[in-house]
Amino acid sequence: VEKLELDPLIKHPLQNRWCLWFFKNDKSKDWADNLRQITSFDTVEDFWAVYNHIQSAGKLASGCDYNLFKDDIKPMWEDERNKTGGRWLASFDKRGGKGIDVDKLWLETVLCLIGEGFDEESDVVNGCVVNVRGKGNKLSVWIGDYKRDEVVLKIGRRFKERLGLPPRFQIAFEAHQDTIVKRGSSAKSRFTI
């Protein structure tokens, strides 16, 4: 069985087609112009071909992001499927993020999404983002509906578990509509776990 699964002629289909986007912060351009689609894939083999071809997240310049979203969803609040959504956010500031391997955590996040690791809740998961910032990297999982508390919490617990974060490290859930109207640098958290 194992041998058959590794047959190089058979590609393993994913449940969803995923699109990888790259954001580079160029202040002379509009936000949306800095966001570019790289490619999409819908098999395990094609995912690795993409992953091994691109710069690893940890080597990106500060201000860059990778966004991995289901193919029909744009990585922005304005998209119909994100409008009433939110994100689970893991922020690694300089102090708390010491020794954190952003490449490893980003890969774990991506594998969890493309492998439908959120079980029945996977349908509510729209995508994931890594923000590379000098003051501290951020990882997030975007969810399509912030009002379904139980679903939101299940996804958050799984995300934290898959990242292997210690119990005292908290991740926070923010509704996009709160992020849009935020004052200062952080939006109100609806949950922390």
Partner: peptide
């Protein structure tokens, strides 16, 4: 059914980069 793959399964397809 849903095409679900755990991390171990997915990782075995990672080409050897060493």
């Amino acid at each position: 059914g849903k095409k679900q793959y755990d991390r171990t399964f997915l990782l075995q397809f990672q080409p050897d980069c060493t």
